[in-house]
Each structure stands twice: as C-alpha cells, then as structure tokens.
Simulated scan of single mutants.
Amino acid sequence: MALSLRLVAAALLALLLALVKLASESGLALPEILFWRQLPTIALIPLFLWLQRSLKKLSTQRLPQHGVRAAIGIVAMSLNFGAVTLLPLAEATTFGFTSAIWAVILSAIVLRERVGLWRWSAVTLGFLGVIIIAQPGDGHVPLFGAAVALASAFTIAIISIYIRDLAQTEDSITIVFYFALFTTPLLTLVLPWFWTAKSPEQWALLGAIGLVGLVGQILLTAALRFGQVASVIVMDYSSLVWATLLGWAVFDRLPPAITWIGAPLIIGAGLLIAWREHRLALGPRANLANG
C-alpha cells in the first residue's frame, strides 16, 4: 500500500512542478504561488473531515513539533519551487533525488550513525552524477539553479525524518493541515508586496496548484506512515519519467544526453542506499559488511 501511495504521489508532484513552472512563466511571483498552494489546505481539510465526521483528527498534543516541521517545510517548498523555475523539469527532478544522499550525510554528522563503505560509495556515486549533469563552468544547467535544487533536497531529507517521527502519533492529513496552518499566515504577511492582477488562466493554474499539491502531499505523507522511508522513497524515481514527458509535452524540451548519463548515477546511489538500509534493518545476519 505504501509503495502505491508513493507512486501516485510522485506522479502528482511531478505535475505540481510543471504547474508551478507554468505559473512562474506566466508572470506570477514565487511567494504568491506558495500562498495559493497552501491556502486551500486550511479550508478543504477541515471541510473533508467534517463531512467524514472525523474533525477530531485535527486534535494534537505535538504543536511544537508541527511548528518545526512547518518552518523547515516552507523553506524546502520555496527552494523546490524556486529550483523548477530556474531549471528544466527533468534536471530539477533529478537533483531532487539527492535527498537520499543528504540523509546519509545527516545520519553520520547529526545522528552519529556509523556509515560504512556501501553508503559512502553511494554518496560519492550520487555527487559524481550531480557534477556530470551540472558540468560546472561549461554546462547547460545554471549553477545557481543546481545549488537551489540541491539545497531543496537537503531540507527534504530533514523533513522526511520529522514526518516519520510525527507519523507515529499523527494522521497524515493532520500533518499536512498543520503545515498549512503555520505557514499560510507568514505568507499572507509578504503577499501584498507581490500581489498582481490575474488572468483567468493564472487563476486556473493557482487553483490546480493548490488542489494537486494538497492531494500529492497527503499521499506522500501517508506513504511514510505505512512504510519505511528507505523502501517507499524508491518510488520517487518514477517522477523522472513524468517530468521528462511533461517537459517535452508542455515546454517542448527534452533532457540532453549528459542528463541521461548523470541521472542513472544519482538514481543508482539512491537505490544502493535504500538497499543497504533495508539490509541493516534486517539485522546482523543480513550484513556481510559494516555500514
């Protein structure tokens, strides 16, 4: 079930990024896109739960943890949306896959977890893929855009740890609601500086961003509730297929050959990390080497 949820979420989030890119190219500013991405959540989730007679799901004893998750989450969302406005869809999506690599680095530095040869090799492999795609100094990818995408993946790695912890006691829809509840007022404060008159097409884009983003985030969070991070995150790689198709169909752009050389290295690194963490979870008998 967790894998299916994550698979659908990956498709929806690829669509979300395409909509964000369209909205940005239509002249809408990033803070305004973020605001309309979050606002529908505050109204639609309570309405849905009220119709289901399940409003009690919104009760929580962990407001501080939701606040921390929201603070990191709004930074991650800003960087993620910013990356897709600076990069082609496929490249922005590929750099996002480095979240698994950042998770290994975080576990070693912050959690003091022992990381052995397998996972450090995966980290090296993944960043080799990043260098190949970015081609520092002589590439088709803007280095600033690549840096924003990598920073987004880093913050997403942090969020995955927080969501996994929250999901032990909170429903996925509760986590999504409090994320919007904490961040929408902050976005409201900056909105007057970016507000513009909108065409019907722009309003349609903003409405689609809010709806697709809400459903995708609920499914994404639910997958972390029902499955291990190392297992469900494998399904995220399917979003590269959707990003490539959307980039071709909507923006008339296909990734260059260099992306198809670097992307398998990044994906391979993520799969190696997922495999190794699965082996570690099985216990000492399953491990032939440390880390």
Rank of each mutant, 00 (worst) to 15 (best):
F35W: 05
F35I: 02
F35D: 00
F35H: 02
W36S: 00
W36I: 01
R37G: 00
R37K: 07
R37Q: 05
Q38A: 06
Q38S: 06
Q38L: 07
Q38D: 07
L39D: 00
L39R: 01
L39Y: 00
L39I: 02
P40Y: 00
P40M: 01
T41S: 06
T41I: 03
T41K: 01
T41A: 06
T41E: 02
T41W: 02
T41V: 07
A43R: 00
A43D: 06
L44C: 04
L44Q: 01
L44I: 05
L44W: 00
I45R: 01
I45E: 03
I45T: 05
I45C: 05
I45W: 02
I45M: 05
I45P: 05
I45L: 07
P46C: 06
P46K: 03
P46L: 06
P46D: 08
P46T: 06
P46I: 04
F48A: 15
F48I: 11
L49Q: 07
L49I: 10
L49F: 10
L49M: 09
W50K: 12
W50H: 11
W50R: 12
W50Q: 11
W50C: 10
W50F: 13
W50L: 14
L51K: 15
L51T: 14
Q52S: 15
Q52D: 13
Q52Y: 12
Q52C: 14
R53H: 14
R53T: 11
R53N: 14
R53G: 14
R53W: 07
S54W: 08
L55D: 09
L55S: 12
L55H: 08
L55G: 12
L55Q: 11
L55I: 12
K56M: 10
K56W: 15
K56A: 15
K56E: 15
K57I: 11
K57D: 12
K57T: 12
K57H: 13
L58E: 05
L58Y: 04
L58A: 04
L58M: 07
L58G: 04
S59H: 13
S59F: 12
S59C: 07
T60W: 04
T60P: 03
T60D: 02
T60R: 02
T60E: 04
T60K: 04
Q61K: 15
Q61H: 13
Q61F: 08
Q61S: 15
Q61W: 06
Q61E: 12
R62K: 11
R62Y: 08
R62A: 11
L63T: 05
L63W: 11
L63E: 05
P64Y: 08
P64C: 09
P64W: 10
Q65E: 14
Q65F: 13
Q65W: 15
Q65L: 15
Q65S: 13
H66D: 10
H66W: 08
H66S: 05
G67M: 08
G67A: 10
G67F: 05
G67E: 10
V68K: 03
V68D: 09
V68N: 05
V68L: 15
V68H: 07
